[in-house]
Write a protein that binds this DNA or RNA. Structure first.
Lengths: 333, 333
DNA sequence: TTGTAAGCGTTATCAC
DNA sequence: GTGATAACGCTTACAA
């Protein structure tokens, strides 16, 4: 292991000078710079970031805590984060929680132990405990996709209620009578917000909100399938459904297909969040599209800014969704 | 910042004892253990992993170097790695190369600087330079998905040539006459292997290998689209295509659809690697399915084993693919 | 501008 | 079994 002392010795300067050359803040005699650079090359010296981190008491690691890398929504978001992080000199540590608060806690513990520079998190639970642990340790936190009640942190969201309202309204205005809603876990803010948007659309059109047309599921494909099945088993089954995320939409459509219910003629479907290659799916799916990559990018930018300017007040950025009408919600005439 | 000294003071023991209690290797008097634990709780002491890493001169970080988290193939693979890593006490750092050797080099530099415990890599280039840098620094490397010529490392692959041969053979046996191939970049081993499998299937059936029916593309959706377009512009266009990865398959099908060419009646399609919700796509896609999650899991297990047993000889694990016949390759009668 | 030296917070090697 | 103490490799006052 070649250290800064080896380089110093070879270049016949002090370790401090080597450090100065490498970090290039203070000015160093050009001759010495040349000697140091040569020694670095000759010895193939690689600065030890662990030692540097200890000395500076900060690292260049960001934790990105999400519920599932398998979901293209989070994938795209992570990509946005990573692109910004890399450019700013940070690396991204991936933390899958599977919506499990215990896993979330473990990752927070790791982030704390490893003195990570910051955390971008889509919280799994309603409790603010994990985020508070980070904040009280002085670790900057950016909430992404999901709000954290009662805590002041930088936050990046989309207009969930609005998007859901558009989606539901679109179904109602298209002539569907009994529009159901499959939303996510009660403890997740997006699930609640999207359900609210759904309810608001019904109310504003004088349609009664019927509880038996609402299902709380898990944001996963299987959950969407099961919820749809359960809705169809009602005495008075829905003729349309709004699903509050991409995977549940896929599950719901699969269920409808398997039961021989034609979409959109016998049942209309709108999902929240797009899926990749939506164009290949038949019928193509009407969705509330989110700027997923931008979501990640924005969160990363907020984190980077907070790291350089820790004192400033937390801000919340709300990005806009967009209803993309495709086949699954439009009955012929 | 509460350190091990604070805990020691409060528990009226030495820092060494605190360390021993926390790491629990050597035996410590139960009384002292209790006092230390209490002090840890009261002070909410969190060991500083950075300091520990410096002292131990090893970390608990793995780098996973892939070309794109946006591709569900890599997503699933990463998931497999992460599940194993977490259980073994490691965190996963995500490194997107976009098939760019320069980016790959930057990430290797970071892995080296951060003294990461190991690297799982799907190499972007043909050059072994980056991997050699890691190996000569003593960092264990596991090659995943793509082979690294001329270097002895643990490797996890699938039977690429075999899968491609099955896929192509299936098209030929189904009566398609002019089967084209859209493969990946020449420098990537999987692209080469899959092309070879394609050629072998042709040869074994006495069908001449025609170079103008082969395209080297980029493993991305747009690339697949462009390659398909270019094939269709040939004087003697193909009536079937084998695409060497999932995204290019999607692109190829989109191109065919846009040109009004019906799949599978006018053109048959088989892709390498599955896509999520393949069942919703119409026509559903015949694919060579890979055990993506297993691929990641296996690589992670190999890495974990090498970390505990550095001396053992590198091994190569080849997992099996499976042809899943769906609609896109089967002309009615 | 350059060098000396004191840490950063652990763990591990010694004595006891 | 326990406690001093010396590293681990770097950065940064401070002194020269």
């Amino acid at each position: 292991m070649v250290t800064i002392y080896d380089v110093a010795q070879r270049a016949a300067v002090s370790p401090a000078t080597v450090s100065r050359v490498l970090n290039g803040r203070s000015s160093v005699d050009p001759d010495l710079v040349a000697r140091v650079r040569q020694a670095v090359d000759e010895l193939d010296y690689r600065p030890n970031a662990v030692a540097r981190n200890l000395r500076r008491s900060r690292t260049t690691l960001w934790a990105v805590v999400i519920s599932d890398v398998g979901n293209p929504f989070f994938t795209s978001l992570v990509r946005g984060v990573e692109d910004v992080a890399q450019r700013a000199g940070y690396s991204v540590v991936l933390c899958n929680t599977d919506e499990d608060p215990a896993k979330e806690a473990r990752y927070v513990t790791a982030a704390l132990a490893d003195r990570m520079a910051g955390v971008i998190i889509s919280v799994a639970g309603r409790s603010t405990a994990q985020v508070s642990r980070l904040l009280s340790a002085g670790v900057p936190v950016v909430a992404i996709d999901r709000e954290i009640a009662g805590v002041q942190v930088d936050t990046v969201l989309v207009d969930n209620a609005h998007g859901a309202e558009l989606a539901t309204g679109h179904l109602l205005d298209g002539g569907y009578q009994r529009v159901a809603c499959i939303t996510g876990p009660r403890r997740v803010s997006t699930a609640v917000q999207r359900l609210r948007g759904y309810q608001k659309a019904l109310r504003s059109r004088g349609v009664p909100v019927r509880e038996h047309l609402v299902r709380y599921s898990d944001f996963r494909e299987e959950g969407g399938y099961a919820a749809m099945a359960s809705l169809l088993d009602e005495a008075d089954p829905p003729d349309a459904v709004f699903a509050a995320n991409n995977l549940m939409t896929v599950g719901a459509v699969e269920c409808l297909t398997n039961r021989g219910i034609a979409v959109p003629t016998q049942a209309g479907v709108v999902g929240f969040d797009d899926i990749p290659w939506a164009d290949l799916v038949r019928p193509s799916l009407t969705t509330v599209a989110q700027p997923t990559y931008e979501l990640g990018r924005t969160a990363a930018v907020l984190l980077a800014e907070r790291l350089t300017e820790p004192g400033r007040a937390p801000s919340t950025v709300t990005l806009h969704t967009q209803l993309k009408v495709r086949e699954s919600s439009t009955r012929g005439a």
